[in-house]
Design a protein around this nucleic acid. Structure first.
Length: 818
RNA sequence: GCCCGGGUGGUGAAAUUGGUAGACACAAGGGACUUAAAAUCCCUCAGAGAUAAUACUCCGUGCCGGUUCGAGUCCGGCCCCGGGCACCA
């Protein structure tokens, strides 16, 4: 009798066995090349959703596969525990964020363990733990001393009714989500990290990062946005001691500049507005936009003259200064020179406001230039540019900059789109920024020995603002410099700070330094799995942070992640699963009904990793059926004999040989898919094909039995990273002595793959007209003759002139006729 | 708006370097087993035409065009969907 497949019981047993042997507790002293396998740690939002299940199953498949391949694997897990939802829950349900977060962690850990992920839980960390974030504060202070930290004003979304700063996602159609009040842009002093100091390295390293998808490198390249251009100074007409500096990538078009535009927050605009009520009103309107770049970019272009003028740095002509809603204060110097003839945005603006358009570039190829229709933005030859007429782009670029340099009004610069990283958040549930404000001494860093600055967890939310602001026990502190009464910084860090180095802490989780030499052993991460939504921000900040740590001597490599696997989204109603989407994505009821192996297999089978797909439970029945067939097949096979006969290759029937070939083809394909291609749905298909082939096999003698045994053994081994629990039991059922997870991944028996006859496709003019069977080593001429002899092929060749014969070895023959 | 992806049967998908489009599944329909149901097993399954036939023919990978003996795959243009756009994580 075949025992029934009872996933709940079997899975608990298998997990207990792994637990007992400490199978997934990583140890630096174990033999084998180290392999750091990491999936992006989750925000503890409450319960897992199918997006998590996908990400962590993929990570676990890699983990288990590498283990079978003999690597010393680290596969840790932790919690990105600071963040906005905990505060929202606190306000809504009156639960302290710390408790809410801890409850969620406990529940989600249980779910992960139920899924059978082979993780090293001894290294678990939560970023809200002072023993974690103290090192973040420590590094921040080191960076402050190095001059990599500074404070400046930056624009935030301000909800005037709730008197609080809003995240972009809390702004809905320009209004605060809670209050419904129109959101204003407001300037506030904020802490910044000088990521721009590393812009060049962050960009250049991308060239060597072969383990990253091209798409992600391309996104990061564009985000960093290196551009060569010029900084040009325009002196103010009414006060030549003051200058307005702009950045342009097209200094060759300088002679066509007809106005200068500044951002609404630009000091010049603000100064002009003091004497101009209309301008003030316009700037006020510009303020009623969110800080989101997408909103800025889709705005109807609008502007207003400041009434001020500047001098053209070469012609000395007067150019008007406009305020424009599309100029970003954060980018460059918050001012642009406008050349409507050769920049489409400037052209549209000039059309709207009747500003003159001057052509200074003419085409040098057959491209069309009609400035009545659109700007001409191609590079070309200069006209209407005085001494520079006739120059091409490169010469004009160099000579105009040289001319400006001579008068001290311009210089060549390399500019980056990347802006410094604003790390201040006016929120409670985050890592306190270790700074003190003293009336006498100004900003004073917290002394290292006073770290960590602990976030008080006993808090009550009165309104929506940060409780820290009204907590004397937190706020009041003596100035470390002068001893006078001072006030703590109440801003907390951006949560990207925590997620920028957690992978290094996993390597030395109990260290009494930020990290220790174990971090140098495990990092860089060899395989990093995570959602494509993190392609820019998280991955760029983490790369930056790793370089900061390197420059502090904490780690030795330049880059933190060797190989990156970017997952598509698991969608729900066509959108990414979110914390607010409720239980629809919760795997719990599926785990209860089908067990972990079925959920894992169905998820892996559903789509290749990089593809987004709409989650559906339709595949679960099929996955369960597949595992049951595997279960029953192995047990029936094992019960049909006392002893497993030895495999004697010479005794194999042709069908047994075919089965062996299929089995080893499956092994080779799985190795390639797990290791190189990182595509796992095809591994599931391949094993399905293999067990279908075993099922079709008529077992007549011991040689057949031995081949079938080998095939079952390989099927169980190959599927084990995906469905580890059932595989654990079937491995025992097959009579194996060792535990499956400790078994080495087998070598392919190449002799089993040899085929003496091959089937080739025959095409006539690219259309399939027949198939022929040829010897493995058949000569080209013979293959063509055989192809022509096929009845249907011959019919299509009849009366036609053969112009070309193409033979693709082992694949096809194409005969081209006229 | 800008950057990055994706679009293949009723559905999820496969086709790895330009070489048989739809493997493997799901759903559906038909059949076997059963008193019955579930489970299991077998068959059919892109569309159209034609046939005694599973021979055969045409058509087909979002749309339009191109390169090639040959295009789902490469190139140009477009449409739609998804992700990111610096305070969701």
């Amino acid at each position: 009798m075949t025992p029934i497949y009872d996933p709940q019981g079997l899975e608990a047993q298998a997990q207990a066995a792994w637990q007992r042997s400490g199978a997934f507790v990583a140890d630096e002293s174990r033999p084998g090349e180290k392999f750091y396998c990491l999936s992006m740690f989750p925000y503890p939002s409450g319960r897992l959703h199918m997006g998590h299940v996908r990400c962590y199953t993929l990570g676990d498949v890699i983990n288990r596969y590498r283990r079978l391949k003999g690597y010393n694997v680290l596969h840790p897990m932790g919690w990105d525990a600071f963040g906005l939802p905990a505060e929202n829950a606190a306000i809504k349900h009156n639960i302290p964020p710390a408790k809410w977060t801890q409850d969620n962690i406990d529940y989600m850990r249980t779910q992960m363990q139920r899924l059978g992920f082979g993780m090293d839980w001894s290294r678990e960390l939560a970023t809200c733990d002072p023993e974690y974030y103290r090192w973040e504060q420590w590094l921040f202070l080191r960076l402050y001393k190095k001059g990599l930290v500074y404070r400046k004003n930056a624009i935030v979304n301000w909800d005037p009714e709730d008197q609080t700063v809003l995240a972009n996602e809390q702004v809905v159609d320009g209004r605060g989500w809670r209050s419904g009040a129109l959101v204003e842009r407001r300037e506030m002093a904020q802490w910044f990290l000088k990521i721009t100091d590393y812009a060049g390295e962050l960009l250049d390293e991308l060239e060597h990062m072969d383990g990253w998808p091209e798409s992600v490198k391309s996104m990061q390249r564009n985000w960093i946005g290196r551009s060569e251009g010029a900084e040009i100074d325009f002196l103010l007409a009414h006060d030549p001691d003051q200058k307005l500096t702009v950045f342009t990538t097209r200094p060759d078009t300088l002679m066509g500049a007809t106005y200068v535009a500044v951002a609404a927050e630009h000091p010049l605009a603000l100064a002009a507005a003091q004497e101009d009520a209309q301008l003030e009103a316009f700037i006020e309107r510009c303020r009623q936009n969110t800080t989101a770049e997408a909103d800025m970019a889709t705005l109807e272009k609008a502007g207003m003259s400041t009434g001020l003028s500047v001098r053209h740095p070469i012609t000395n002509a007067l150019l008007p200064v406009w305020v424009a809603n599309f100029v970003l204060m954060e980018y460059g110097s918050g001012a642009v020179m406008s050349v409507p003839g050769h920049d489409q945005r400037d052209w549209e603006f000039a059309q709207n406001y009747g500003i003159p358009v001057i052509q200074v570039i003419e085409p040098v190829d057959d491209s069309v230039c009609d400035l009545n229709v659109a700007a001409f933005t191609h590079r070309g030859r200069l006209i209407n540019s005085g001494a520079f007429n006739g120059l091409g782009f490169d010469d004009a670029f160099a000579e105009i900059i040289a001319a400006l340099a001579e008068s001290g009004l311009g210089r060549h610069v390399t500019n980056f789109r990347l802006r410094d990283w604003g790390v201040s958040r006016q929120r409670y549930w985050g890592c306190p920024i270790p700074m003190i404000h003293c009336a006498e001494c100004g900003v004073v860093p917290v002394p290292e020995e006073d770290l960590p600055v602990e976030l008080p967890t006993e808090v009550s939310f009165q309104g929506v603002g940060s409780p820290l602001v009204s907590m004397p026990s937190f706020l009041d502190v003596d100035c470390p410099q002068c001893g006078a009464a001072a006030r703590r910084e109440t801003d907390t860090f951006d949560t990207f700070m925590e997620s920028s180095w957690y992978f290094a802490r996993f390597a030395s989780p109990d260290s009494n330094a930020m990290v220790d030499e174990r971090a140098s052993y495990w990092t860089p991460v060899d395989h990093y799995v995570g959602g494509i939504e993190h392609a820019i921000l998280h991955l760029l900040y983490a790369r930056f942070y790793f370089k900061l740590m390197r420059d502090e001597g904490l780690v030795k490599d330049n880059e933190p992640f060797n190989r990156l696997m970017m997952l598509g989204m698991v969608l729900q109603d066509g959108k990414k699963m979110s914390k607010s989407a409720g239980d629809a994505g919760d795997p719990q009821k599926l785990l209860d009904r089908y067990g972990a192996d079925t959920v894992r297999t169905a998820m892996m089978f559903a789509a290749p990793p990089e593809q987004s797909f709409e989650w559906s439970e339709a595949g679960l029945e099929g996955a369960m059926r597949f595992l049951r067939r595997l279960w029953a097949g192995v047990h029936e096979h094992r019960q049909a004999m006392e002893e497993v006969p030895e495999l004697v290759k010479e005794d194999l029937s042709s069908s047994a040989k075919a089965l062996r070939r299929k089995a080893y083809e499956t092994l080779a394909k799985a190795d390639d898919d797990f290791g190189r291609r990182m595509q796992f749905n095809t591994v599931v298909s391949a094993v399905m094909e293999l067990i279908n082939a075993i099922g079709r096999m008529d077992v007549e003698n011991d040689a057949d039995r031995a081949a079938v045994h080998e095939a079952w053994t390989l099927a169980v081994l190959v599927i084990s990273p995906i469905a580890p629990h059932i595989s654990h039991h079937l491995w025992e059922a097959l009579g194996q002595q060792d535990a499956l997870i400790d078994h080495p991944w087998p070598e392919v028996d190449h002799s089993a793959l040899v085929q003496d006859r091959l089937t080739l496709v025959v095409q006539v003019n690219g259309k399939v007209r027949g198939q022929i069977e040829v010897a493995q080593d058949a000569e080209q001429g013979a293959v063509i003759e055989l192809a022509k002899a096929d009845a249907n092929v011959a019919r299509h060749l009849e009366g036609k002139h053969i112009r070309k014969e193409i033979v693709v070895p082992k694949k096809l023959v194409n005969i081209v006729v006229g």
